[in-house]
């Protein structure tokens, strides 16, 4: 596959490491009262759609950026690639 890296353009997926569902970005607050149940969902429940999927990929043999790749798991068509850091910040993640 080819991943269109937001900074480096078209790169072979061989340079990347796949992590999984981009929902892994939504790490709950570990100090919250309901942390345990939130973390159980966070760690163990994933969507596994046959179709469009937002995924985390890491450009390990490249610039080491984590990317959010929107990919169709059936056709492998990739419709969007973003820097995960930008997505995380936009979603309000900070420190």
């Amino acid at each position: 596959m080819i991943i269109n890296h937001p900074l480096l353009g078209r790169r072979d997926s061989q340079e990347f490491v796949y992590l999984g569902d981009a929902a892994l970005m939504h790490r709950p607050d570990g100090m919250a009262a309901d942390a345990l149940s939130k973390f159980v969902d966070f760690a163990y429940l994933r969507d596994n759609p046959a179709g469009e999927h937002r995924e985390l990929w890491y450009h390990e043999q490249g610039d080491r950026s984590w990317l959010v790749v929107t990919r169709n798991t059936v056709t492998h068509a990739i419709t969007k690639v973003e820097l995960a850091r930008d997505v995380a910040k936009a979603e309000g993640r900070s420190k």
Partner: peptide
Amino acid sequence: RHLEYCRQVLWPD
């Protein structure tokens, strides 16, 4: 890889 994940994705600021 994990540290980069923490730095870029979990605590980007």
